[in-house]
Computed example of a mutant assay.
Amino acid sequence: MAQKAISDRFFNEWYEDLPELTEAEKERCDLLKERYLYHRHHGHISEGLVNQIAIAPLLEMASFYDPPFDIRAEYPVQIESVDVDDNEETIYQGQIDTLVIHKKLWVLVIESKGQAFSIESGMAQALTYMLDSPNQSQPTYGFISNGGFSIFLKVLKGEITQYQFSNDFSLYNRKTNELCSVLMILKKISKLFQQT
């Protein structure tokens, strides 16, 4: 079983020593925000459109489509659970929307939801998938987004498996474009694994 980490130091990757963005990257984040809000204003945005408008461009700018990473779409996951009370085994099956792998380690589990879904529905799903990752000594990171809101997650397996969520990031913040923060975090995670 996993427990939520208490110390903020457990998941400092989302707020500490983030890389600076270039002016071109900031402009691209501004364009992605405008594009998302435009389409959102004109109707429902499906999960596929969230991936096309927001997530795929962010992954590209953070170099997750390039070596040394391997990327998989709709990666199947099977999780076995034993109910302690009646000793019955239940098998859950699902798909990770996008899985980024580095040297057979799960680097990033990306769970996207259409704009009609709250971010919380993706948080539980991503955490469940991440607990099934083969990583034993390296952390696994998650990125959950419904387009308008995004959040990161870190899981580290060990004697006691721990996890922690970042703050949430909103495209509806009028004073700043929080997609820039999302991109900085993605770039930091990418660099952490490129150095190993």
Rank of each mutant, 00 (worst) to 15 (best):
Q3Y: 05
I6Q: 06
I6F: 08
I6R: 05
W14G: 03
L18S: 07
L18I: 01
P19E: 14
R28P: 01
R28S: 07
R28Q: 13
C29I: 03
L31Q: 15
L32C: 04
L32T: 01
K33N: 12
E34P: 00
Y38V: 09
H41I: 09
Q52W: 15
P57Q: 12
A62E: 04
D66V: 10
D66E: 12
D66W: 03
P68H: 08
R72F: 14
A73Q: 13
E74P: 01
Y75I: 11
V77R: 10
V77K: 03
D83P: 09
D86M: 14
Q93S: 09
G94V: 15
I101K: 04
I101Y: 08
I101D: 10
K103S: 09
W106N: 01
W106T: 03
L108D: 08
I110L: 11
E111N: 11
G114H: 04
I119S: 05
I119N: 05
L127N: 03
L127Q: 08
Y129F: 12
D132M: 12
Q138E: 15
F143R: 04
G147D: 02
I151Y: 01
L153P: 02
E159M: 00
Y163K: 01
S170R: 07
N177T: 06
C180V: 04
L183A: 07
K187P: 09
Q195T: 03
